[in-house]
């Protein structure tokens, strides 16, 4: 009886770290890395102070330290991944008066940059 209970507990705890969840985390880490690479390649630092990227460190736009904890994008839009992915590619379409131009990138890059921004958690 006891033995069955122990096995049951082990089975439940093994189930807790299910393979799908592990898989999900790995994919996430990969897109965060890709996003960071895209941010460096595109030179987002020309306007933004970016965590983990020493140079360039521009002052035209807001600092992106702790961006995941920020409620709003550009002070106007809710900070949701789907909106963020559109904003990083084509900011003027969402915030007409912004100084941030549309930036040529693939949809995958926009998603990866979004994943990277969502990983900037300083809470």
């Amino acid at each position: 009886m006891l033995r069955t209970g122990v096995i049951g507990v082990i089975a439940i705890s093994l189930n807790a770290c299910s393979p799908t969840e592990l898989q999900h985390e790995r994919v996430d880490a990969a897109s965060v890395r890709k996003g960071r690479e895209a941010v460096e390649r595109l030179g987002c630092g020309a306007c933004h102070d970016l965590p983990g990227i020493a140079w360039p460190s521009g002052r035209v736009g807001p600092s992106l330290h702790g961006f995941a904890n920020r409620a709003m994008i550009a002070g106007q839009l809710p900070n949701r991944p789907d909106i963020l992915a559109r904003f990083v590619r084509d900011a003027p379409a969402l915030v007409p008066g912004t100084a941030m131009p549309e930036i040529e990138m693939t949809l995958e890059e926009a998603d990866a940059i979004t994943a990277w921004l969502q990983s900037l958690d300083e809470s």
């Binding site: 521009g58 035209v60 131009p101």
Partner: peptide, 10 residues
């Protein structure tokens, strides 16, 4: 710097 509209504006 890389050259795109973003870095040009910056």
């Amino acid at each position: 710097l890389p050259n795109n509209k973003g870095t040009l504006a910056g």
